[in-house]
């Protein structure tokens, strides 16, 4: 347990040493709200979306969490390049502790990073419902761990960092665009039943819906029953954390990371 915590601690510490990345991401987040959110909300005047700005802030929080959690995969390539991967594999830490710790560490650090940004945004838009907010926070925790696990799993399968970068870009485009992060499910479904179907089974949709439910942002247009997205997120977290452990273990133990 102690070693698992140390692996988590390491990933959290390292993330906050990338000061440039952190500052740039924060600027990106603020400008998305202050520029895109404010301007785009003036264009959107739909019955289903009474206040797009509030809706967008909720979705943007989940998108930022997603992109921060994905970063752990890039860390793996950085570590492979500097040989740190070999070092980690030589430590008196079991492979399971290592991958689980990294998955949790990757999720936790993104949560720590995005947390204050989300808190400030919620304060600005004045939307807090304490109990459901805590439930949604828990769900976002699991979501972030699941995304980290997914990123680690993909990174150890794909050996080239360039390919990983491109794939994650494409995946980001698909997984975020085919979700309710930026537009309500009814609108997605109206544009294409296929899109709606995919968006219905998308972890980003689950996270965005739960977050909006928890924070009380536009409950009319999001899920009224949090159970379905909560189960979806638990399944996503479980799959990528534990499947990730198995794949990671197989790939690295055989020297497949080289």
């Amino acid at each position: 347990m102690n070693k698992l915590l140390l692996v988590i601690e390491r990933d959290v510490r390292i993330f906050f040493q990338y000061k440039f990345l952190i500052i740039m991401r924060a600027i990106w987040f603020v400008s998305q709200i202050a520029l895109f959110g404010l301007i785009a909300s003036r264009m959107i005047n739909l019955r289903e979306v009474p206040d797009y700005f509030r809706y967008y802030v909720g979705g943007l929080s989940v998108m930022t969490l997603y992109s921060a959690a994905v970063f752990i995969g890039f860390d793996l390539y950085e570590e492979a390049e500097h040989g740190v991967f070999e070092y980690l594999l030589s430590l008196p830490v079991s492979r399971q502790q290592l991958v689980l710790g990294r998955s949790i560490g990757g999720g936790l650090r993104s949560f720590i990073y995005v947390g204050p940004l989300i808190a400030v945004s919620l304060y600005v838009i004045g939307a807090i419902n304490p109990i459901s907010f805590l439930i949604s926070l828990f769900a976002l925790f699991l979501f972030a761990f699941g995304v980290s696990g997914m990123s680690i799993t993909i990174a150890v399968i794909i050996k080239s960092s360039d390919r990983f970068d491109i794939l994650m870009g494409v995946l980001d485009a698909l997984i975020v665009r085919l979700s309710t992060a930026m537009y309500p499910l009814a609108i997605v479904q109206a544009s294409s039943p296929l899109y709606g179907g995919i968006a219905n089974f998308n972890p980003v949709t689950y996270a965005a819906d739960l977050f909006r439910w928890g924070t009380g942002i536009e409950t009319i247009i999001t899920s009224q029953n949090p159970l379905m997205p909560l189960l979806g997120i638990i399944a996503f977290f479980g799959f990528f954390t534990f499947v990730g452990v198995v794949i990671y273990d197989k790939r690295i133990e055989g020297g497949g990371w080289q």
Binding site: I14, Y18, E78, H82, G83, V84, E86, S90, P92
Partner: peptide, 13 residues
């Protein structure tokens, strides 16, 4: 075991 590798293994940050 403990290993000191040929190339130092550490991230630049």
């Amino acid at each position: 075991l403990g290993i000191a590798f040929q190339e130092p293994k550490m991230l630049w940050v």
